[in-house]
Design a protein around this nucleic acid. Structure first.
Lengths: 141, 141
DNA sequence: ATATACTCTACTAAGTAGATAGACTAAATA
DNA sequence: TATTTAGTCTATCTACTTAGTAGAGTATAT
């Protein structure tokens, strides 16, 4: 299940990616437009900024804008940032592998085998879906 | 993230599918073998039985056994039973669709578009992975 | 009859998600 | 340079969920 945090993060990023305005967008405007509790959104945007995905400008006329080309911002990074590894079980994760304490022999663990398939399929999608490509899909409608 | 409940359920089912013994297997033996807290396992097995995936026999010599051919038991059913819909967001679910309260126009929601891809890929895997096929993969090692 | 083993209800501790409050800091502009 | 605007940071809170426990009850094979 996707956390609200991740969902809000993606919605905010998409909103920023869809603007042509080179000027930053205010948190409060973003919060109203995307129907996200403002204080909650603040902490999300801050995380995105600290990870280099967003840039911020302080003071009057300030706000947030994308930190880099939307073609290079992938959902996989955003999801992992807030919800952790994509794999349904830690022992199937590529980026954050952790062994199961109770597992005698990983090679013959059916749960791991199946979940590795799921994580690979998920990563194949999310690590290849950029903000730019999503915006393109949306705007085709 | 897969809950422990689902993980235990799959492990228990695999253990039962891997036995040739036509006699039922005791909860206590299953719990020890798979390193699952017995009382916790009891409730899991009960759910699986109520859903028709397992059969139980009471009294001396009793225990649990598969309720149908392992070729017809798919992980998708088990995962949904304990963890709910496969889709990361309710509005992307096929089996348990729920509209987002805050969504103005679903057709142009980027989150939903991407998550629908993820849910489809996950379902394609889990609804086609049977206990029998998993056991085959395990035993090839 | 009785031991065995599944069934059911209730409860609880610990952790996480989602959100809120408020003080603080930086920067633009009058 | 004073003031306003707007982002930054720390702390806290409540409700819910997960994982697990306890114990009484019920069915059945021998």
């Amino acid at each position: 299940m996707l956390s609200r945090k991740t969902k809000y993060a993606v919605k905010a990023l998409l909103a920023l990616a869809q603007r042509d305005d080179p000027e930053p967008m205010r948190i409060s405007d973003l919060a109203v437009q995307e129907q996200i509790p403002q204080k909650f959104l603040e902490s999300i945007l801050l995380t995105l900024r600290n990870q280099g995905i967003l840039q911020s400008r302080k003071g009057k006329g300030g706000g947030y804008l994308l930190g880099r080309d939307p073609k290079t911002i992938f959902l996989g990074q955003v999801v992992r940032m807030f919800d952790g590894p994509l794999a349904p079980v830690p022992c199937a994760s590529q980026t954050a592998y952790v062994r199961c304490a109770d597992c005698k022999d990983e090679a013959v663990c059916g749960v791991r085998l199946a979940m590795k398939d799921v994580r690979d399929a998920t990563a194949r999608i999310l690590d290849h879906t950029s903000l730019a490509s999503l915006v393109r899909r949306i705007e085709r409608v």
